[in-house]
Amino acid sequence: MNRLKNNWFTESCEMWPGGTFSFEVKEVLHSEKSDYQDIDVYETTSFGRVLVLDGIIQCTQKDEFSYQEMISFLPLCCHKNPEKVLIVGGGDGGVAREVAKHPKVKQIVQVEIDAKVIEVSKKYLPFMAVGFDSPKLTLHVGDGFDFMKNHSQEFDVIITDSSDPIGPAVSLFQENYFALMKSALKPGGIVCSQAGTIWNDIELVSSTLRYCRNQFSSAAYGYTSVPTYPSGQIGFVIGSLDKDVKFDTPQLVFTREDEKAMNLRYYNSDVHKAAFVLPTFVKYQLV
């Protein structure tokens, strides 16, 4: 499907009616329809390479690290010893890249349903797909639901890097999905899922957090800044089987030398704490 007009790509979606986001395209690097979705990769004038799925921007080379680092390190640093981690989705490799950096992580299992996203990312988004090269990683192509049904009480942390709740990703925002993740966690385990933004759909944020709270002893919503997403922000729900967990207090604090060694460009312990400080209108709606 050609979404370009005069070398400009414009993103529009029913989730943010009345608003669009556009960028200038230098070159179409790839365009195809997989068994699950339309996959496009563009070389742009201002944002580097951009991955678009079903017409929705997934990541841009300019700011992807904010999303990848925060969805990974928020849950990892809330857990005392996150040795075994499951990633559901994340076919571009960015989350795997970040999870592999954590010094306590020993084993990463990733389940991505669309092999074409992995293939395309390895070819055109190597700065993210480098995550697939980690010796810690075991990659499965398949359905995350089916995988977790066969892996009970196995993981310390489960990270769901999904697209927005339109089409095949809708099921990842329902309560039965949080119940399934709960069954796949070890005692004290933590989950983290992409959960939308307060600016475009606070009802989605509220319902996703409610589903998480219904299944986990503790739950919270945190967010990060991603300028090329429609509202400039994206959020995550985090749930823990430990009722005493303090999400805004990282269990492991990195030094400046650690941050440099791991090439962290967004995440640090202060940003971690601030991620859970909510605006007034959100704070009281999500109680």
Score class of each variant (00 low, 15 high):
Gly196Met: 11
Asp143Val: 05
Gly48Pro: 12
Ala261Trp: 01
Tyr177Leu: 02
Thr208Met: 06
Gly222Glu: 06
Tyr229Lys: 02
Thr138Gln: 13
Ile190Lys: 00
Tyr124Glu: 02
Lys101Phe: 08
Leu137Val: 11
Thr280Val: 10
Val95Trp: 11
Phe9Cys: 05
Leu264Arg: 11
Asp133Asn: 14
Ser231Ala: 15
Ile238Met: 15
Gln194Ile: 04
Gln37Phe: 05
Gly142Pro: 06
Val52Ala: 10
Thr228Arg: 03
Val95Pro: 10
His79Tyr: 12
Ser12Ala: 11
Asp143Gly: 09
Gly19Gln: 14
Gly18Ala: 08
Lys122Tyr: 06
Ser121Lys: 15
Lys123Cys: 10
Cys13Thr: 13
Thr60Arg: 05
Leu180Val: 02
Thr208Gln: 14
Gln215Met: 11
Ala179Leu: 08
Gln58Glu: 11
Ile234Tyr: 11
Glu27Tyr: 04
Leu286Asp: 09
Asn81Gly: 05
Phe173Asn: 01
Ala274Tyr: 04
Phe247Cys: 02
Phe155Gln: 08
Phe73Met: 13
Ser31Val: 04
Gly232Cys: 11
Arg210Thr: 14
Asn7Ala: 11
Tyr42Met: 09
Pro227Tyr: 08
Glu175Pro: 07
Gln215Ser: 10
Arg210Asn: 14
Ser183Met: 14
Pro227Ile: 07
Gln61Phe: 02
Pro230His: 05
Asp242Tyr: 10
Val130Glu: 15
Val50Lys: 09
Ile166Asp: 04
His30Asn: 11
Gly189Lys: 10
Met181Gln: 15
Leu137Phe: 13
Asp38Cys: 05
Thr249Phe: 12
Ser206Val: 04
Lys101His: 10
Ile39Pro: 00
Glu83Arg: 15
Lys243Gln: 12
Trp199Thr: 09
Ile234Lys: 00
Lys122Ala: 00
Gly188Ala: 12
Phe178Lys: 09
Gly196Asp: 07
Val105Met: 00
Gln285Ile: 07
Thr10Asp: 06
Val25Met: 05
Pro82Thr: 08
Tyr36Pro: 07
Phe236Ser: 01
His79Cys: 12
Ile39Phe: 03
Ala169Pro: 08
Ile56Arg: 06
Glu43Ile: 05
Met148Asn: 11
Asp258Ser: 12
Phe236Leu: 03
Tyr36Trp: 13
Val253Asp: 04
Pro227Leu: 12
Met181Asn: 13
Val50Asn: 08
Ser163Arg: 04
Ile159Met: 05
Ser163Pro: 00
Ile56Trp: 02
Asp161Arg: 01
Ala100Pro: 00
Gly222Pro: 00
Pro165Val: 05
Ala100Arg: 03
Pro230Phe: 02
Phe65Ile: 01
Ala195Tyr: 01
Phe173Ser: 01
Lys123Trp: 03
Phe132Met: 07
Val120Glu: 08
Gln215Asn: 14
Thr255Val: 06
Phe127Pro: 01
Asp114Arg: 09
Met70Gln: 01
Ile108Gln: 07
Glu112His: 10
His30Met: 04
Lys84Thr: 14
Pro279Met: 00
Phe216Gly: 02
Phe178Arg: 03
Lys243Asn: 11
Trp16Glu: 01
Phe145Ala: 09
Ile234Gly: 01
Asn214Gln: 15
Lys84Ser: 12
Cys192Ile: 09
Val28Met: 11
Gly167Gln: 13
Phe23Arg: 08
Val191Cys: 07
Ala220Ile: 12
Ala220Tyr: 02
Thr138Val: 14
Phe21Arg: 13
Arg265Met: 12
Met15Arg: 15
Tyr267Gln: 09
Ser231Thr: 13
Ser152Trp: 07
Gln61Cys: 09
Leu51Asp: 14
Lys80Cys: 05
Gln37Tyr: 04
